[in-house]
Design a protein around this nucleic acid. Sequence first.
RNA 1: GCCGAGGUGGUGAAAUUGGCAGACACGCGAGACUCAAAAUCUCGAGUUGCUUUGGCAACGUGCGGGUUCAAGUCCCGCCCUCGGCACCA
Length: 816
Amino acid sequence: MSEYNHKTVEKKWQQKWTSAEIFKASKDDKKEKFYCLEMLPYPSGELHIGHVRNYNIGDVLARYHIMNGKNVLHTMGWDAFGLPAENAAIKNKIHPAKWTKQNIAIMREQFKKLGFSYDWSREIASCDPQYYKWNQWFFIKMWEKGLAFRKSANVNWCPVCQTVLANEQVSEGVCWRCKNPTEHKELEQWFVKITDYSDELLSSHEQLSNGHWPEQVLSMQKNWIGKSYGAEVDFEVITKNKKSTLKIFTTRPDTLFGATFMVVAPEHKIIAELRSEIENLDEVSKYVAASGAKTNIERSQSKDKSGVEIKGIKAINPVNGAKIPIFAADYVLTDYGTGAIMAVPAHDQRDWEFAHKFNVSIVEVIKGENSSVANSAYEGSGKMINSGQFNGLSSDEALEKVIEWIEKQGFGKKTINFKFRDWLISRQRYWGTPIPMIFCPECGIVPVPIEQLPVKLPEDIEFSGEGESPLKTCKSFVDVKCPKCGADAKRETDTMDTFVDSSWYFIRYCDPKNDKEAFDVSITNYWMPVDLYIGGIEHACMHLIYARFWHKFLRDMGMINTDEPFTNLLTQGMVTLGGNVMSKSRGNVVSPDDMVDKYGADALRLFILFAAPAQKQLEWSSDGLEGCWRFINRVWRLQDIVNTKSSQPATPKDKEDLLRAMHKAIKKVTIDIEKKLQFNTAISSIMELVNTLYVYKFHSNDDGVSKEVYKNLIILLTPFAPHICEEIWQNLDTKGYASLARWSVFDEAMIKENNIEIPVQINGKLRGTINIEIDADEAAVKEAVDKNEKVKKHLEGKNIVKFIYVKNKILTLVIK
RNA sequence: GCCGAGGUGGUGAAAUUGGCAGACACGCGAGACUCAAAAUCUCGAGUUGCUUUGGCAACGUGCGGGUUCAAGUCCCGCCCUCGGCACCA
């Protein structure tokens, strides 16, 4: 057998698969479907190792299910809108569309060299008007249903460039281009009322739990949505000349008597409302401006809590009439709750720290067992003290009682609060889906008539990075006639968040060429939901919640018949380099090209799955890649061994051992792929089977045992290293493609051994092993122990206090 | 800061979910083959200390405690690293 040449073999089979269209999928009601999906990539222009890992996991699973007779849908496309294309346009004077298309072409070729089993005829790109047309259509439907609405919201603003900046374009409070400090600016923008689905997004977690989705993802989403029960309480606010109220939200109404000050977010409207009454307005205004430059994360991160007392105004604690000071502090966020809190320093650690810094009194109102508020807040439950008529109750009881009482007194009510916020989808950018709305001075907001969709992006645009969105200055785009009354009107120039594109692309894959509707329900209801979705854990909250929301919206539109889009989820760990996630923006990408060239796609694919479990973060190192390449060559050379007659015939025991190794490997690989999604151990057991074949290489091939084992080995290896397996498969006297071969079946009876080694522990230390028949009873175990010299030595002159035999596993003796 | 993960030999990791810690690899060392080297095949090894060279013993899964006949796995308290935090995707 000549040496293995991965270059010619890989190319040959990639071409064969393509021309025979073996991965082309079509609806077939008689066949069980399997929709295997990986999160679609952003076309950055370079495939990196993180991509290879993600798509390789999907490919192994898609191929495995094909070999198990399923009708598999496995697709690829491009999340093609977004900021980097626009940045490239500014930097390199290349049109975003051109840049994106070039990148797609490069990455498509890179994908093809890796031999992934995609049905390329279904490829989509979100920047294609035939795709984003439907974003616009959905948006109008949402608007009709009251799910899309306008509201004022902050954007990052660079006063020098006169432009809106993404969070990524602001670091440490300065603009990425001109390095001048940025500001916040209020703009009317489009929102989607995703919070209408808050409760359902939480409650349908039930059908995703029990192993379908990783618990950590469900937990993150739960906390992200952040449903909490509590009360809204109105505090009267007084000044020398005016009165007002401050509404707060608290999850701990039981601590109301301990409220010794109030804190409002720096953006809170009460500051403007009582402006004339504030004695230290300069100081307060300064603080508000400083907070405006910080992001929410920066605000919550700082260890030393900042804030300023708003002098001249006081709040009155409704339960005891106490006059308490009001502070503005940026640890209170404007968009959570009501943007104002009652501070209970005795029972909230943040309030405690703030009270100490600003010298505010601390009143203990809940006493736990041995609790003290001297060195930190006590956040647990206990007995009510200093709380008027509630004294003596347990705080848990008081929680309900206080709310009842507040409601009766009329200064508050029981509420449910969510951290979850409505989805701001407006972007003041060019490279995105135009929001299909028109502003008419007569009719107000009018949607673009459906038959005029798509609203296409104009192409002749200059990109400077300064000033307003390029769409805003494009007269041919902006100036339109009102579809209702024909008056001169203006087109909306905001484009959509790219998370819109990725919220339903997987449904479009089912019917990607449809130009009559977004998709044909009779087709999508066959393929959907996605059986297994694979992607990075970093998408646990945003993308995966948006997509779930979109699906529920489609269900309510009657366009899909399931509640959830993704039945099972595999969150792949990130590939890092130098401790950071590989990404083009970080500039730490490792390209697979050289590795594919030197060692072949099979070796790289094998290695990346062998290097670590799929869910775990992986610090990239190519050490070991060569080892996988050697393994592949070792598999190749086995062809000679199984085809060569040996002088030494195999004994029946040898044959039994070989077949046992084979059945064991089939079982392990099958369970690891299908049940555990644990590919590294699947590969290691394939390696063990190869090693076993080498151990028994002296076998005569007369009876075909080695060959049978080898054939099954190739089947097990095909999803991982498909190219070499096709080549070997063809060399064995077989028909058809290895990629379409039936998966091997194991026989439990062939795996079972008659005798097993049982470790013997004495007082917790391993002192020997005994060999017994499988399933032997305790009496037999005792007998074996008595016969074992090594173990007996340790037992001399001692009494056995405990004799614990865990069947077929371990024997533990406790002696004295 | 909040939420979610992770930490096991020189390295990547494994461990039937409480039952022989280190499978399978990388790297390393030794041997065979070779004029030689590479490739290949075979063998070896957690660390430390004894050793009559057969072995024997102690220690060992980020740190400190605990539960248990038995803990990488369970409980309590820490430390460090990473991801997400709503305009990167």
